[in-house]
Amino acid sequence: MPPHRSGAARPARARRDDGRVLAAVADGDAAALTALYERYAGPLFAFLYRLAGDRGTAEEILQDTLLAVWRSAGTYRGRSSVSTWLFGVARRQAHNRLRGVPPPVAAEPDDGADPLPGPEELAVGQERVRATLARLPLAQREVVVLAFLGDLSHREIAEVLEIPVGTVKSRLHHARATLREYADERTS
């Protein structure tokens, strides 16, 4: 089964199955941990990569996350979806690893590009997005990544970040304003 993008987008049966799989992890079932990994590695890695700005660091944090899930699966109480709980674990692991680490600085690409973008230009565009996200304060970057790349609802983001829904909305509003400022800087 390919990784999904959001707990909300998955059918209720699949979400219940996630709960059973996590309960099996709590009972020490390594195959269940592998099943969770197969379902959620993609979205969790994308989230962690956007927070860390570095593939290697994101991979290390993902491994830290799986270890934390293995150790703490028994603490899951079902108050949120398993996917939301997993994003919360990943976020805590990222904060532990990234505390005090400045965001990565991206090199500025050459602006003499062909009007029709090829693979190199598309890669540069992705690098610009990554570099722009890295300029956001971590609190705003988390919300943007969870909302637009993790496809989580405001409520789910609030659960992952352990903040009120209003704070999620406020951070998204400020992040959009900051991103607009960055975009204006690049066009002027």
Rank of each mutant, 00 (worst) to 15 (best):
E142C: 13
L98I: 03
A94Q: 02
T132I: 04
L152Y: 12
A131V: 03
R130C: 13
I157Q: 07
L161M: 10
V129M: 07
S153F: 08
S81P: 00
V160N: 10
L138Q: 12
E121V: 11
P115N: 04
S153N: 03
T132N: 10
S81E: 15
L136E: 04
Q126S: 12
E120Y: 12
F148I: 06
G118Q: 10
L122S: 06
P103L: 02
R92T: 00
G112W: 04
L133Y: 02
P102D: 02
A94H: 02
V82F: 08
G118F: 05
Q126C: 13
D111R: 14
V143L: 03
L146S: 07
T167E: 04
G118H: 12
R155S: 03
D110K: 07
V105G: 02
S81M: 12
A94P: 00
H154E: 11
L161I: 01
R128E: 06
G166Q: 04
D151E: 15
E162K: 10
R135S: 03
L133D: 03
L149F: 10
G166C: 09
E162L: 13
P109L: 11
L136H: 08
R130W: 14
D151T: 12
D111L: 15
E156D: 14
R141S: 06
W85G: 01
L146V: 09
T84S: 14
P119L: 03
D114A: 09
G150D: 09
D111M: 11
V89E: 04
L149W: 07
D111V: 14
R92H: 09
T132K: 08
A147G: 07
A106I: 00
E159G: 13
R141Q: 14
P115S: 06
P102C: 06
P137Q: 08
Q126N: 15
V124N: 15
V89H: 01
F148Y: 14
P102S: 05
A94M: 01
R155D: 01
V144Y: 01
F87A: 01
S83D: 14
H154W: 14
G125F: 06
E156Q: 06
A94D: 00
A106S: 13
D151S: 11
A131E: 10
D114S: 12
P102T: 05
F87N: 02
V160W: 07
P117H: 12
L146T: 08
R97V: 01
R128Y: 07
W85N: 04
V144Q: 02
A139Q: 11
I163M: 11
V101P: 00
P119H: 02
L86P: 05
V124T: 15
I157E: 15
V129A: 14
H154R: 10
A158R: 08
F148L: 15
V82P: 00
R135L: 10
D110T: 10
S83G: 09
H95F: 12
R92M: 06
T132R: 14
A113I: 13
E127C: 06
